[in-house]
Structure formats: structure tokens, C-alpha cells
Design a protein around this nucleic acid. Structure first.
Lengths: 195, 195
DNA sequence: ATGTCAACTTTACACAGTGTCAAGTATTTC
DNA sequence: GAAATACTTGACACTGTGTAAAGTTGACAT
């Protein structure tokens, strides 16, 4: 029954995702096992460690939610502003989906290299999106005076951090659209010369 | 020897501070004890738990660095912009000093209520500073259209988060003055109507 | 029908770090 | 010289991760 193994494996991933989404920050291996209806040890038959289970869950979510397609849309924009807006929509809209797992991964960063690397990787992908947007603005000739390409990317990347989303949406109670609109505006006034 | 007890206690606080400043994220009770030249158990004679030791260290740093005096200076500014700038200087300049302990406190938030409360408390103090600045801008009549007092505070508070400082200064390699200058500018263009 | 293999379960245990407990020691203080 | 203070030492409970080994169950092949 090799299909059984596959079923169990993806069931574990689904369950992990669901538990992390619940907002409970202290999800243990035992919790995941219980929710998946397997023994705690069975988890280690499929994933070598907690960190790798979380990383695999991230990849699983990416696959299901189709990140690539989301981000591709921002690449087709013609002008710099459009590209900026499209990217804020794409990434900003994706944050809520991966928020649960992002909390777990970040919490493991200090103790686990794998988790740190996985999060770093994800962040570099976001940074690339920022880079493309800033470059498009630069090529349009609208990059603000005093902002270099690099500092512009640093800035946009920082503005669009998951932590800022958490603060505004979860802590301050902003709606997702308020978040997206405001961040677009701030990114604009911070990066682009207004005429 | 009651003075001995006091010496040991403050030595523990100093050593904890120093170790946290070192950037090593995994400081254990045993490490602190060793560095302070006492047994691990002696720590529990002075502080009931790791969380309370960290909280006490925070208060100790505040006392030594004189936070209150720092923040008081921003309160004496006359105009809104000045107040904004003074607050960014005061808080932004304080972040590097408390960064080590802030990392430790935030890492404990998930598992420890005390640590969570201590950090929350600190953040609310910062928020009050933000509130005062935004209010001053509002009273000057320069608060940007579309920004309410509350959203303005949310925004400034988010911009001035320790996490954003970490990203720009530690991760992106900005200097402290680059950080301060840029944040002042962004806060200005985000919150104030430019004439 | 029987044996084999894969996908589990069960039980046990090592390990790290926090926090508790009890008994012992050294120095001061009255 | 007794009592109090500020420790030390050593043992241990607890939680969560990860490892190891032996047992169970069902599908499938011959």
C-alpha cells in the first residue's frame, strides 16, 4: 500500500497547516500526530525533524496556493507604479495565507538552522520581487531623489515584512484591504518622486 | 552581609545584559550563572524565573540608560514635525541599546505570560510617544488627508518597530544615522500633508 | 495458506533546559 | 557561640524533541 504512505504524509501536512493556522503558537509534534490520527513516532517516518515538517508544510502551502502564479502577475505590469501595486497586492495578499507557518518557522530560527534557512529563502524571494518593482520605477525615471536602488529595495522589503502586516492587521485591527491600500501609498510616497 | 546580596543581584543583572548584548540568542540560565560567578541555583534565589530575570534586566537597563529623560526631550518640542523628529531620535536611538534584551523577551512571548506582558508594556509606552507626535501634527493642521489620528499612530508605531530597525540596520547594514534620517522622512511623507 | 513487505504502533529511553528541593558550608552579626 | 544570611552542591521532576527496537496489521505474490 504505497498510496497509504502518500495519504498519511499529505494528511500530516494538511493537519499541520490547519493547526498552525489556528493561531496557537505552541504546536507540538504530539499535537500534530494526534490531529492526523497517527502516533507521534509515525511523523518521524515521514519527516526527519520538526523543522523539516514545517518546511515541507510551507512548500505544500506554496503548491496549493500557487504562489508562483500570484507573483507572476506582478511581473507582467508595464509601468513601475503598476508593478509596485501588483507586487503589494500579490505578496501582501499572500501573507495572511502563510502567517501561521511563518510564526512557527520564525520561532524556530534561533535554535534550528533548517528553519532559519527556509525562512531566509522565503524572504529572499520576496526581496527579489521588491527589487523588480524598484528597478521598474527606476527605469521609469521616478525613483525618488536620495534613494538608491539598494536602499529602495531595503525599504520596500522592510515595509512589506510579515511583522508589519502582523502589527497592522492583527494587533491594530486593520482590514486586509486597509493594509494593502495604505502600504501601496506609503511605498509610493517613500520611493517615488511625486509630481 | 546584606550588601553582598545586592552586589550579587546587580552583578547578575549586569552580566545578563552583557550576554544578551553579545547577540547570542540562546542564553541559558547556566550561562548567566557561570558569567556571574555563581551557581545556577543562586539565580533562583534572586529571581523566580528566567522571564522575571529578563524583565528585571530590562528595568535595570532603563534605569541605567535613563529612558525617561530621553523621551522627555521629545515632549518639549514645539511643532508637530519637531516632535516627530525628536521622538524618532529618542526611540530610534534607544533601540540599539535594548536590542539584545528585546530579542530574548520576544522569543519568550509565546511560552511565557510575564515576558509577553513586559514586552507589551514596553510597546505601549512607545505607542504613547507615537500618539503624542501624531496629535501634535494634527493640532498643527498638517495631518495628511485620509489619515485619522488612530491610523496615524498605528502607522508610526509600526514604522518604528524594533523589527524594522533590525531589518534595516542589522540585516541590510544601514548605519544608525541612515536609519534615523530615513525613518524621519518616511514618517513625514506618510503622515504629513506636504506643501 | 503462507510468507513477505510496507506502514504503521507501542514502549522505552537519551538529552537539553527550566525550575524545585533539601542538605551542607562559610561568613557575619549579635 | 548561636543564629542568620548568602550562598553551594547534588538530586530530581517536568516538558518536548528525537532515537531505537520489537511487535502488529493488511495487502499482495507465489
Amino acid at each position: 500500500m504505497s498510496s497509504n504512505r502518500i495519504n498519511t504524509k499529505s494528511r500530516i501536512l494538511e493537519v499541520t497547516w490547519r493547526l498552525l493556522e489556528s493561531g496557537n503558537k505552541a504546536i507540538r509534534m504530539a499535537d500534530i500526530a494526534k490531529a492526523a490520527g497517527v502516533s507521534r513516532q509515525a511523523l518521524y517516518l515521514h519527516f526527519p525533524s520538526r523543522a523539516e515538517l514545517l518546511v515541507a508544510t510551507t512548500r505544500h502551502i506554496d503548491k496549493v496556493k500557487n504562489v508562483d502564479a500570484r507573483l507572476a502577475r506582478s511581473r507582467s505590469a508595464s509601468s513601475g507604479v503598476e508593478r509596485l501595486h501588483a507586487f503589494v497586492d500579490a505578496w501582501g495578499g499572500y501573507i495572511p495565507q502563510i502567517h501561521g507557518i511563518s510564526v512557527a518557522l520564525r520561532a524556530m530560527r534561533d535554535t534550528d538552522k533548517e528553519a532559519a534557512a527556509a525562512w531566509e529563502d522565503r524572504m529572499q524571494a520576496v526581496r527579489q520581487g521588491c527589487e523588480a518593482a524598484v528597478l521598474a520605477i527606476l527605469q521609469d525615471g521616478y525613483l525618488k531623489e536620495g534613494i538608491t536602488e539598494i536602499t529602495g529595495v531595503d525599504l520596500l522589503w522592510t515595509l512589506l515584512s510579515v511583522e508589519n502586516w502582523e502589527r497592522l492587521v492583527l494587533e491594530c485591527g486593520w482590514s486586509q484591504s486597509e493594509y494593502e491600500q495604505t502600504l501601496k501609498k506609503i511605498a509610493e510616497v517613500s520611493l517615488m518622486s511625486q509630481r
